[in-house]
Amino acid sequence: MGNCRVKQSRRKFIKAAAAAGGLLATGIVNPFNAVIFATERPEDPTKPWWGYGIDIEKCIGCGRCANACKLENDVPKEPFYFRTWVEQYTIKNDGSVKVESPNGGINGFKQTVPEADIFKAFFVPKMCNHCHKSPCVQACPVGATYDSPDGVVLVDESYCIGCRYCVQACPYGCRYIHPEKNVVDKCTLCYHRISKGKTTACVEVCPTHARILGDLNDQEGELYSFMKNHNCLVLKPHLNTGSKLYYNALSAEVR
């Protein structure tokens, strides 16, 4: 009798354990199915969810994007305030990496390394990654920077206290303190333009179509096919920022 009871309870336990194990397994496995580029999608797929693509293979380093951005968005002219800028990477045959971005690329670039020493060279435009899990939004102590419902990281300049914690938190160096307004300033993805049906200033002036603005919810859209047809990467993926700026032909040297 007692023996039988033990057996029964053991059987029950095994059943329960199996059920729990199964739950656990699906619980662990399921979220991974949803992770695309380490970002999850917002709840409403009918609304736009802005993302951005940059094709390094197409960029010729003319710096028109950085220039147009300053003119469109009232960014100070001085060479240490940028919402977007272009970097020239030169990887030499000896393995060393040379990076430069004189005035953000607005005045163009010169390649001073002789041809014989160059292993490869390319331009990398940089801007806010409009991260879905933004470290800057996380860090803002007062809620003066936020992820808008359509996935753009914006600043409330009438509410920012200017503590600069978000500048420290951004891994990509995309924020600066506006010297006249004394609040933080950053790329808004030309929110005033894209919400009126226009494209961003940088996309407008890019002569080689290296920059793509797009809606990540639009499966017919340009950005979607760009990501589908190229091997895209984000910057610093190990930081798990949920970056929505996708680069084609991104080299490992780029940081």
Partner: peptide, 16 residues
């Protein structure tokens, strides 16, 4: 965040 700020960001004037 202050939700009105979204509209304020939308209302900025265009240059291009």
């Amino acid at each position: 965040y202050r939700f009105n700020s979204v509209a304020e960001n939308k209302d900025l004037s265009l240059q291009y």
